[in-house]
Design a protein around this nucleic acid. Sequence first.
DNA 1: GTGAAAGCGCTAACAA
DNA 2: TTGTTAGCGCTTTCAC
Lengths: 336, 336
Amino acid sequence: MYKPATIKDIALALQLSPSTVSRALRDGYEISEETKKIVVAYAKQVNYKSNPIALSLKNKRSYSIGIVVPELANSFFSQAIAGVESIAYEKGYHTIITQTHDSAERELINVNHLAQRSVDGLLISMSAQTSDYSFLKNLHDDGLPIVFFDRIIDDIDTFKVTSDNFSGAYNATESLIKTGRKKIALLSNAPQLSITNTRLAGYMKALADYHIPFRTELIRNCSKGGNDYHEVENAVKELLAMPDKPDAIFVSSDRISISCIRALKNLNFNPKEIAVAGFSNSDVVDLLQPSLSYVRQKAFEMGQIAVEMLLKLIESKYPITEFETKVLNTELHLIK
Amino acid sequence: MYKPATIKDIALALQLSPSTVSRALRDGYEISEETKKIVVAYAKQVNYKSNPIALSLKNKRSYSIGIVVPELANSFFSQAIAGVESIAYEKGYHTIITQTHDSAERELINVNHLAQRSVDGLLISMSAQTSDYSFLKNLHDDGLPIVFFDRIIDDIDTFKVTSDNFSGAYNATESLIKTGRKKIALLSNAPQLSITNTRLAGYMKALADYHIPFRTELIRNCSKGGNDYHEVENAVKELLAMPDKPDAIFVSSDRISISCIRALKNLNFNPKEIAVAGFSNSDVVDLLQPSLSYVRQKAFEMGQIAVEMLLKLIESKYPITEFETKVLNTELHLIK
DNA sequence: GTGAAAGCGCTAACAA
DNA sequence: TTGTTAGCGCTTTCAC
């Protein structure tokens, strides 16, 4: 059985009390240099490692932070996680990553598990299928520090980071218009997501600014967020079967952008016939065929900012009541 | 401060002893139905959740398993993780995911952290840069259940799952030969990885079977495993600048396959001139241009099998001494 | 059927 | 400078 050395073991072996050992190991000022030396040496010899579980139980502090994302396989999230880690490790925190696969049920379970495992705080990007936020609100009211990133919600007052989704959508739509497209369809994610609506607004504003009528029949919600390819393919098929069919598609969600490209390929559509622009943080987006113009979010930076906010919350001596929502700009990459 | 209800709170409120409450909550046979009802009802009312930290400390058992992979952004690993989760959740285990970014140092830290956080077992795919496995060996000798997947090592005797890398490499190489290619270069990962050498062997066997001379100058190790694009681009550039240059490339690593494709595109190479086959579990490999034939591993299944092995180790009443290494076959997808 | 007490590994008052 | 004690939340003998 796996049984590491404990402080008690050391105390016993060295004929000291556990508290002396504990203090010596943490370089307490009260302990004589001599004792420290002996303790540290022996601890090293028996490969002593402090037990974080016991520490957590004692201190209600674990120096670990929980990360909850919809899908690890989505580059945007793995990039954001890398950003979180880059700062967290440096500051002595560990990260515990879980994914929800966009399931509200899984999200609830994971969040509770993390909270009970006494993470010091939570970084979360909401599942597309969550509509009841009360479990998070309760935890937050009970004092668990939470920071939202990317897929944020209004109901809870705390720090948040997200992209400038409005401008991102506006610019992408505008780029399509500028290449002469006039009938621009929109493929979007689940409507309960904040980002879905903000991006819709950006799209509509671009149309309005260029005096292009907004047509509801050109809007398709793929509420499974690209997890279900066929949902997207059907949407694309329907759009392209319309009598007055679109000459461009703006895709307001990462995963759906890829599915849309695949649908166009599978349906053998001529790339000249239909232009695509969409949000994407895929690291191979430049190699895709048919190609698309894409809006890239600053995922890594977003992760960094989110964790910095969280650490501020965690390490603050006094309760924080002034919260900020940071908005990062996006980059538009046009097809060459 | 975040402060959930404890057994003590319930005991106090209900004028019972903590032990009674504890037994009632776990449906102990000694407790009267009546008391149970009262306790359970009250527990629900105050949203009592047992504290896994305290349980871990007490039981040395956490019902959570640690997963250590090189890179979440690599589809192969996110697919494998999804496989692990599919079984683990069902059996009542949580997963704690960490990534090493192929750093030996990070791997050491993460593994120790997980071990000390008393995960019940470890699922690991080794970092490309690790050459000293003693830290794992120690943990394993101390009784921590460990299962290796994909990037396995020989030094530790336990359950392992990996792909049939030999055949995968053989088949991919053979497919290139069958389309008339005779000068087939090899782009491979760090040589300390087991998979690197097995795939090299498969490649060499295919050459031998078809009486094609093996030329060491056509072999390039990209020891950073595709994390460094320029390493790959340079290798490709060098290969294609050779007087007797290759007419095909076989890439024996997931990330490097993508980098190789990108290099060919950036260097403006004619796809007819140089054929590419490579290992890849990218979920967009079918949309890449230039296109490649690819060997796909059964990542999801591998995750499932790995966790089943691990649970067998964890839940076995008696020490297990007979170990198995399972080898999954791969699928070759040819360019249409 | 229920309670008291000890202990998992650690730390922090309080004593000495 | 070092030791004693209590307690974090929980379970589990052992009493009653």
